[in-house]
Design a protein around this nucleic acid. Structure first.
Lengths: 372, 372
DNA sequence: ATGAAAGCGCTAACAC
DNA sequence: GTGTTAGCGCTTTCAT
């Protein structure tokens, strides 16, 4: 009688214990290795080893551990792991703007490679502000990301925060908007070649008075594009007419519109315009349309493209597009290479230059000879 | 003499120690609280407290600590913090596709709110695959993110992984593509109202035979849009002609093109088309153009928009656009609310329905009365 | 084949 | 006002 009662109480307390236990687990859903250990009467280390198929562990133990972990839906805590191994399996990305076709394509490429390599991707945007870029660099560093991919903001004119990052040993890869003066891995678009191709294409189509709406000359990309433009003219024995090269320093489409109007007012106006970017192309298009002129019958346009206005101009105009997805992929590959570098191997500082794509819209380019 | 020599040796050893120390720090750039403590001959806890302006710490100590931490550029290790507080200050996002205008706008909205709340954002994409979606859910859970924002993949037809997540206590907010059967926070677009507005707009412009290219009727959104369309007709005392409602089940533009051709072959063809999505709109546009008909002189089109084809149709056609940025913001706000909920407060399960925007292109809509 | 113990970097309850 | 200690969850020597 007494024994019976004792056993009953024991059972009851066990049941209650289990109940409380599972309730607790329900509530915070965080089963740990300790929990498994307690349940199976082994030490945490055994669980840890069993879960990773360590050869020392007996098959029975392994089986038991795996079954229980399955049953309780044990999920390892990556944060603890990160702390232990000083490795987060996470990379950080800093870009000027997310909702931008080019950059979202880049992110997609980054995620593609990172995911396959077992890495997470933390996205931050600088919104073209250097302050925010600095905050993001610091925050990502504090999160101990294993590497950082960055395209600098338009405002960024000093680079201490980036140099510090590199000096602290964080692998960094720059893409698209890179810092010339920093010795690091970079992935860029071959703007010069893109501009060269676009201009050559215009020439091949028979255009002979091609203007260029250039970007601010302190930006490397603007300069490269201008150089590509000039090189194409030179290689085709065209004269370089400085009156047909106009710098749009503000970057607004109103400016481009005004400048295009100047060009159109020439006694011998251009028959084609190569625009440094889509904003300029849009401005040019606006000016032309307002005059009741037709594209491409009266004048052709090709522009480097970019998201903000692309939905407005892409269908109408030919463009030189940047390979965003590929850029994301290549940058991430480069980063992975650096991350997996042995401690004592020397850092790599490769620069990859990607080709642009020339997208020709029939409606925007015709041989003048085919015009009425 | 002897004393002098001793002092010199002492100084020398100190200098060497410092040198080695700073070299070590240079190499891995990871100054810890312990390092600061050792340097200042205080305990780590004092450093910790001094850095967070704990009232117990003397002003002098605080000053010394802050100066040193500044000098050595100490950066707290967020991983350790996360482990300690079981809080990562990170939220996870699972979307079908990143390089999609709508979704990148959503991400941007998410990052906006998250950043201001001091959170990081981890982006993962499911690529419309349920397997990958499940992997991502698990990986994010393992990373112990403080909450998850998700738009389910097109393939997702069972929801255990999501229900488990919620049961485990992870705050979850669904957006755009939500799961009806799960009780959780959701942010959606009011498709019915959007369709209603677009249709009403066509009616107001004087169109009187409006066809609808509908989507597969198992998708809630298609159904909602169809309902909005019908409601607008009904409210304007238009007859609902089932012959003018065509379901495009495949979702290809070729299908939409073929169906549009059917419509155009009617003895009394429609004078306007309201397309369930941009693919359908594009198909309709193609069919119309191939017949040499003009938009909108011969027939008008309005479509729900979405990125893939938007650069092709947006400039030409009016559209109903989804507020991606705002959706990201609202979803994140909702998530933050849940995260900041006291342990014992009951979960919230709010649903927010956002308005669409009707974007009217002059070139795509004219009063028939103004036609020749 | 398994356990005990230390430690990744930080904080907070508890001493003194 | 400051130090000691324990512990977040996990791995990994070193014992046994």
């Amino acid at each position: 009688m007494l024994i019976f009662s004792f056993v009953r109480r024991l059972l009851k307390s066990i049941v209650i214990f289990r109940l409380i236990n599972s309730l607790k687990e329900m509530k915070k859903g965080n089963i740990t290795i300790k929990d498994l250990a307690r349940e199976l009467n082994v030490s945490p280390s055994t669980i840890s080893r069993a879960l990773k198929d360590h050869p020392d562990i007996s098959p029975e133990t392994k089986k038991a551990v795996k079954e229980l972990s399955e049953k309780l839906n044990y999920q390892p805590n990556s944060v603890a792991l990160s702390l232990r191994q000083s490795k987060t399996n996470t990379i950080g990305v800093i870009i000027p703007e997310i909702a931008h076709f080019f950059f979202s394509a880049v992110i997609s490429g980054i995620e593609d490679i990172a995911h396959n390599a077992g890495y997470h991707v933390i996205i931050t945007q600088s919104n073209e502000s250097i302050d925010r870029e600095m905050m993001n660099t610091k925050a990502l560093f504090n999160s101990r990301v294993d590497g950082i991919l960055i395209s600098i903001s338009r405002e960024t004119n000093q680079f201490n925060h980036l140099q510090q990052l590199i000096d602290a040993g964080t692998p960094v890869v720059f893409f698209d908007r890179v810092v010339e003066s920093i010795n690091a891995c970079k992935v860029i678009v071959n703007d010069e070649q893109g501009a060269y191709e676009a201009t050559t294409h215009l020439i091949e189509q028979g255009y002979y008075r091609i203007a260029h709406l250039a970007g601010p000359q302190n930006l490397t990309i603007s300069n490269n594009r201008l150089n590509g433009f000039k090189a194409a003219l030179a290689d085709n024995k065209y004269m370089i007419d400085d009156n047909l090269i106009k710098i749009c320093g503000l970057g607004t489409y109103e400016e481009a519109e005004a400048i295009t109007n100047e060009l159109l007012d020439y006694r011998f106006p251009p028959d084609a315009i190569f625009a440094n970017n889509d904003v300029a192309a849009y401005g040019a298009m606006t000016a032309i349309k307002k005059r009741g002129m037709k594209i491409p019958e009266d004048i052709a346009i090709v522009g480097f493209s970019n998201w903000r206005f692309s939905s407005l101009i892409q269908p109408a105009l030919s463009s030189v597009t940047q390979p965003g997805f590929k850029m994301g992929q290549e940058a991430t590959r480069l980063l992975m290479k650096q991350i997996n570098l042995g401690k004592d191997e020397e850092a790599i500082t490769e620069t990859i230059s990607l080709k642009t794509n020339l997208v020709v819209r029939e409606s925007s380019l015709k041989r003048p000879s085919e015009q009425v």
